[in-house]
Structures are given as C-alpha cells and as structure tokens.
C-alpha cells in the first residue's frame, strides 16, 4: 500500500509537470494580455515598462523556465490584474467552491443512490419510470437554463430562497471559512448546490439502478435470501456494498468535475468561488491566475484518483493495490 502510494505520487508529479507545460504554452498562444492591461492613453515608454515588469518581453522558453523555477518554490506567479499572488487569490475562493461542491455531492449521493436502488429493484413499476425519466431530464437540460428557472421559481415567484451569494454569516472552522454552520448559509447554498448536483444526481441514479439490476440477479443475492435474511439486510448489505464500487469510482472523478466546472453555476448564482474567478481571469487574459487554477485542478484530480483507488481496496477485498499498474 505504501509503495503503491509513493509510486502514485511520483507519477502525479510527472503528470503535473507535463500539464504545466501544456497549460502554459496553451495560455501563451491564446493572446497578448498587454492590450487589455495597458491603458489606452499610455505612451510607448509606459507600455514597454509594463511589458518588461510582467516579463512578457522574454521568449517563451525563458518565461516557462522562470515560471517553473518559481512554481517549485510554491509561487505560481502574480495576478496581472489584482497584483496579488495567483495562488492566494485561488485559495481565498476555493473554500466557497468546495462548500458548493461538497453540498452538491451530498445531494447526489443521498438522493441518487436510494432513487437508483428503488428503480433497480422494481424496474417495471410506474415510480421507477418516473425516476428514470427525471434522470434523463436531469442530464439533458442545460445547467444554466435550469439555474435560471430555479431562480425564477424559488427566489422571484415564491421568494423562499435567496438567489445570489453565500450569505453574510461566515464562520471559521479549522481556519477555513464556511457558511454551512447557519441556516442562512444553507438557504444560500441550496439552490446553487441543487443546480450543480442535478447532472451528477442523474448519473448516480442511473449508475445505482444499473448496478442494482445486475446485482439482484446474482446467485449470492438469491443465496442471501435463501438464508432467510430480511429484505432490508439483503438490500442494505449484500446489494448496496456491491453497487458502491462503480458509484465511488464515478463520484470520485465527478467530484473533480464538480469543482472544476462549477463555473456556470457560480456565474448564475453569483457564488464567490474559483469558477467565477476563472471566467473573469479568462476575460482579462490574466495568465498567472489561469495557469495556477488549472494546476490546482490537475492536482485535485490526481489526488481524487488516488483516493478512489484507496476506497476501492476498502470496498472490494479482491482489489490489492500493489497489483494495480496505474
């Protein structure tokens, strides 16, 4: 296990290095930020001074090596726009996004698995067909449209829930700001979290249903029933533990997706997270922030993959981590 984790971390370092090159060169090609950063009425000398101060006059490979050198020291560059370290900007906003993603993940798991199991146990029942139709809507309706509709219904028409921001009552837990300790915070997170969760919820539901349908016909489920176990024990222990394996895999990877692609939801609900920061930074060609953001996301995915593999070995005794050639 330890050997497996160490080997995995070394691979992760390589992945991060390759990604940094791709991201850096990609962003380098996208456009020249000077046009946006330099005021229109600046003269040639001022313009030149700004370009030099940002290091944009150097050739690509020098810029990249300089970036790597600083990155190794934990400095992913300073934002052109905010004049703050890019990493700091992201870290300031990351907790809000994490909060949103965790809430969305909880919703998908807490609702998705039971719905999927119910639909899988009685696939012909009317309620199962309703669940499956709902899941098709869930991942085919565009997130932004659903988000806007939710705001119109719950915030504007009914006035039940706030439509923007994460509330004012921010508390610190272990140094991380969170608004989930108060009812007000939950009322703020509910709409965006449901919006963000909708796609994953549908995926989890379908996955749990497919898993259930497969597992209930296995001999070991019939044998469990032949032992005289209650239906409850058969479903919650024998079936559930088996369908969790694919669900955990997908959820682990999807969680990275939730964090990385919460952009749309954060924009609609004015949620002060990294997704919104990314959109703003792309608009302003704020290169260090974009690069830093993508690097963080790469790290997140690498870490989640590792976590999924470890969960796997806990759920399925047949998996031995040493054997996995990742």
């Amino acid at each position: 296990m330890t050997v497996f984790i160490i080997r995995r971390l070394m691979q992760a370092a390589l992945v991060v290095l390759v990604m940094s090159f791709l991201v850096f060169s990609g962003v380098f090609l996208v456009g020249d930020p000077t046009e946006i950063l330099v005021a229109d009425d600046a003269d040639q000398a001022e313009r030149q001074a700004i370009i030099e101060s940002l290091g944009l006059d150097k050739p690509f490979h020098i810029q990249y090596l300089r970036f790597l050198q600083k990155a190794a020291q934990g400095n992913l560059g300073e934002s052109f726009v905010f004049n703050e370290p890019a990493l700091q900007l992201i870290m300031d906003r990351l907790p809000a996004t994490m909060e949103l993603a965790v809430a969305a993940l909880l919703i998908s798991v807490v609702l998705g698995i039971p719905l999927g199991v119910i639909a899988g146990l009685r696939p012909e029942a009317a309620y199962s067909k309703i669940i499956m139709t709902g899941s098709i809507l869930g991942f085919s309706l565009p997130t932004f449209w659903v988000g806007i509709m939710m705001i119109i219904l719950f915030s504007v028409q009914l006035g039940w829930l706030p439509s923007t921001g994460r509330g004012d009552e921010i508390h610190y837990v272990l140094g991380f700001p969170t608004s989930l300790l108060t009812l007000d915070g939950w009322s703020h997170v509910l709409l965006p979290a449901v919006n963000l969760a909708l796609f994953k919820l549908s995926a989890v539901t379908r996955l749990a249903r497919a898993g259930t349908r497969e597992v209930v016909h296995q001999d070991y489920v019939k044998f469990a029933r032949a032992k005289g176990l209650t239906d409850r024990r058969v479903i919650f222990v024998h079936v559930l533990k088996n369908i969790l394996i694919p669900v955990v895999t997908v959820l682990g990877l999807e969680f990275g997706g939730l964090v990385a692609f919460s952009v749309v939801t954060e924009t609609i609900f004015a949620w002060p997270g990294i997704g919104k920061l990314l959109i703003d930074s792309i608009g302003l060609l704020d290169r260090p922030v974009i690069v830093a953001y993508l690097m963080i996301i790469v790290l997140l995915f690498v870490f989640l993959n590792l976590a999924v593999d470890i969960c796997y070995s806990l759920l399925d005794p047949r998996v031995r981590l040493q054997d996995i050639k990742a």
């Binding site: 070991y220 044998f223 032949a226 222990v237 533990k241 088996n242 394996i245 759920l315 399925d316």
Partner: peptide, 13 residues
C-alpha cells in the same frame, strides 16, 4: 446452489 463461485457475496467476509 450450483455454482460455488457465485453463491458467496464477494465483498463480505
């Protein structure tokens, strides 16, 4: 049951 490879739940001790 017939197939001993399938009658025991693989994820339970």
């Amino acid at each position: 049951f017939q197939d001993p490879m399938m009658t025991l739940n693989p994820v339970l001790r």
